[in-house]
Write a protein that binds this DNA or RNA. Structure first.
Lengths: 113, 113
DNA sequence: TTGATACTTAAGATATCACTTAAGTATGGA
DNA sequence: TCCATACTTAAGTGATATCTTAAGTATCAA
């Protein structure tokens, strides 16, 4: 995988907006049309569709059009990339604490180098 | 909790930039000075400090100055907010699938309501 | 065929973001 | 005291992000 970084950019960027998070929350309860997805928001339909495009570009949401209705759904697998990145930070941090504890046990008053 | 949303905004926004993620990755291996943190990046020091300010505003990183050196560290607890949000999406999705399966079991050919 | 529905496209207004350079302020060491 | 270090502050620039309105296209139903 050459650049998972770009995917993370798109993913976190997509999740950084409260309207888009609300859209994902809605889609977590099941697929909807664009109109239904737009209904709770006090903004124009094109604005909602632009948010949807950001979510689709990130992979978090997918959609397909049948007749004149576009149906949107959450893409749960996409979340794991973000999840993994966060978990890795935690893991790094814990491993460091372990090493630090071990070091202090062996060098009670020493500076940690 | 009145508005965890604003916190999530700041958090995901902070993580949406590759420079900032790299800084967090570095801090996961232990605290550093601002200069050390800046060293891997091909950008001016003020730019790095601005990224650092975004990370601090999000709560993911903290720092304190002693003498003329500011030392930065990762704030692991902050990550759990983002983690919880993502997990909640997954949970919603799985619960929905469960309900859907149950429904299909009871109404084999029926349309799902 | 006509009209309503469900988007879609395009263009533009603001605001925010991610930098830059140039200058300034503490601090610590010789 | 003098100078280098380690930031800090300020101001400006170009690119993106988030919305708007206006106008278009494709479908479905009567």
């Amino acid at each position: 995988m050459p650049a998972a970084g770009a995917d993370l950019d798109l993913m976190f960027q997509a999740l950084a907006d409260p309207t888009r998070r609300a859209m994902v929350e809605r889609l977590g309860r099941g697929p909807t049309s664009v109109s239904d997805l737009a209904q709770p928001f006090a903004m124009s339909l094109p604005a909602v569709v632009q948010h949807l495009a950001v979510l689709e570009a990130s992979g978090l949401v997918a959609s397909e059009k049948v007749g004149r209705v576009r149906t949107c759904r959450m893409e749960p697998a996409a979340f794991s990339l973000a999840e993994q990145w966060i978990n890795q930070r935690r893991t790094d941090w814990e491993r460091r604490l372990d090493r630090l504890g071990e070091h202090l046990r062996q060098h009670p008053q020493g500076e940690p180098k």
